[in-house]
Design a protein around this nucleic acid. Structure first.
Length: 493
RNA sequence: GGGCCAUUAGCUCAGGUGGUAGAGCACCUGACUUUUAAUCAGGUUGUCGGAGGUUCGAAUCCUCCAUGGCUCACCA
């Protein structure tokens, strides 16, 4: 960003800059060195019984000032919330009172005072001394309506956080959810690991990657689209339970549920299968809701979601039959599947295979009906190149996705550990790639080599953290759960 | 990328059918020593997103551009 945004000054800003110059002439500090508080704003009210008539030191931002002649009330906001200050000329002297009158909304101050209740019963702090800690040079958005302009809210999140307390709350909950998730997994013996964010081969998912360049190696690298293949290499290496919580990057569309960089949790458990992953998923998510929100029943966009285990388990074929009447278990050929899809008005290409069509019908007609937590099991092999196939019916794999409110929140499978099979699957993907499918997966010989050394039977699970947090914080867009969502750069004149 | 909508004071928003811009908050001046969206009296604030065009005259009508929102497509 250029400095243009800094040159654009209005009267209110010029006024504040003049005040700053005056402070410098008066040898008053406009940017103090330090001021350590003894309490937070919220403590004053919460612990009033203990703190009454005791001295406290608080720091924060002035959010409102109500002057009544030779006494003033002010609202001081810190991380915990707000508390009212009572500043009286008799208590701090005429000079300091005059100085207080010259402060602006948004200025950061440190105060010392005693806790009391006003006649109206409002817990307050009677200020005995204060210091200006930081002069604020820009006017704050309006106190009552807050900041609504979404463009500014996302671009200048610091401002959003200052004036919209709910925003802060959402990100506190986000932090708690991730903390509880770590705790849950560590208690179950999972080891947190970090794998590369820059990949020579973008693997582990079907998606278009971002490309970057390493100068010394003179080679392109991909920002990772998934950590999957590295985590499974660790299972080969003998780690039995690993997980990683980190960012993935996908060079695709943006929407209320897609941001180019997003956070996932992936875990792998040796000797387990996808049934174990289902149990783990429902217990984990329910545990998060209980620990962070205090309940298994969560309100999302005016719909109650009940995360209490056990969640409904249904195969994709059964789900499609339930919601469309089409019974894919009766179809033998690709052509029959094409006909069936067309019969209910779903456009499919005649080149598509049985599994692709089943998946298409599922996505078109079933997904958005899955409001309460539901495991959809046994995905077609064509759309699951890293999942173990079901021996009894190799058109399907031991894979499930968990849906809540019509959205996928988890994807898991019994991991494919047969290197020959994996190699064939990669070859099919490579062929699709060569046929122009930019999202098809790339061949990863080293991964196959790893499987050749032997990977135990393994259950793997991925959870989209941002989407889970949307559900648990009743946020309607992913941008409300990512502090700095991807935006076009601000335009400079 | 397509469609629809929006962009007016620092912020939140009004401005039928074209006549040169308003409110509340914020800000400034004054009054007020327990108020809390404090109150009362007075005052200031704008390239009406940008560039063209139509018109005697454009915030208003037309075209293009920019940014954002919703939505469809792709995706997690």
């Amino acid at each position: 960003m250029s400095e243009n945004v800094l040159e654009d000054m209005n009267d209110l800003m010029l006024q504040r800059r003049e005040k700053l110059n005056q402070l410098r002439e008066d040898k008053e500090k406009a940017f103090a060195d330090k001021y350590l508080p003894s309490h937070h704003a919220k403590d004053v009210e919460a612990d009033f019984a203990e703190l009454e008539e005791k001295e406290v030191k608080l720091t924060g931002r002035l959010m409102a000032i109500r002057t009544h002649g030779k006494a003033s009330f002010a609202d001081l906001a810190d991380m915990s919330g707000q508390v009212q200050l009572y500043v009286k000329q008799n208590n701090i002297g005429e000079d300091r009172y005059q100085f207080f009158q010259e402060l602006d909304l948004g200025d950061l101050v440190g105060i010392t005072g005693t806790v009391f209740k006003t006649n109206r019963g409002q817990v307050s702090v009677r200020v005995s001394s204060f210091e200006l800690l930081t002069k604020s040079l820009r006017p704050l958005p309006e106190k009552f309506h807050g900041l609504k302009d979404k463009d500014i809210r996302y671009r200048q999140r610091y401002l959003d956080l200052i004036v919209n307390p709910d925003v802060k709350e959402t990100f506190v909950i986000r932090s708690k959810i991730i903390r509880e998730m770590r705790k849950f997994l560590e208690e179950k013996g999972f080891l947190e690991v970090e794998t590369p964010m820059m990949h020579p081969i973008a693997g582990g998912a079907t998606a278009r990657p971002f490309i970057t360049h390493h100068n010394t190696l003179d080679m392109d690298l991909y920002l990772r689209i998934a950590p999957e293949l590295y985590l499974k290499r660790l299972i080969v290496g003998g780690f039995e339970k690993v997980f990683e919580i980190n960012r993935n990057f996908r060079n695709e569309g943006m929407s209320y549920k897609h941001n180019p960089e997003f956070t996932t949790m992936e875990l792998y458990q040796a000797q387990a299968d996808y049934h174990d992953m289902m149990e783990l998923t429902e217990n984990l998510v329910n545990d998060l809701a209980e620990k962070v929100l205090g309940t298994s029943k969560v309100e999302y966009e005016e719909t109650e979601i009940d995360f209490t285990p056990a969640w409904e388990r249904i195969t994709m074929v059964e789900a499609v039959k339930k919601y469309t009447g089409l019974d894919f278990s009766e179809f033998e050929s690709d052509a029959e599947a094409v006909e069936a899809a067309k019969s209910i008005g779903i456009e499919v290409s005649s080149k598509m295979t049985y599994g692709e069509i089943l998946n298409e019908v599922f996505e078109e007609r079933v997904e958005d009906k899955l409001i309460q937590p539901t495991f959809i099991m046994d995905y077609p092999i064509e759309v699951s190149p890293l999942a173990k196939k079901i021996e009894a019916d190799p058109r399907f794999t031991y894979r499930f996705e968990a849906f809540v409110y019509g959205r996928e929140i988890a994807n898991a499978f019994s991991e494919l550990n047969d290197p020959e099979d994996q190699r064939e699957r990669f070859e099919k993907q490579t062929a699709m790639r060569e046929a122009g499918d930019e999202e098809a997966q790339m061949m990863d010989y080293d991964f196959i080599r790893a499987l050749e050394y032997g990977m135990p039977p393994t259950g793997g699970l991925g959870i989209g953290i941002d989407r889970l947090i949307m559900l648990l914080t009743d946020s309607s867009t992913i941008r409300d759960v990512i502090l700095f969502p991807t935006m076009r750069p601000e335009r400079n004149e």
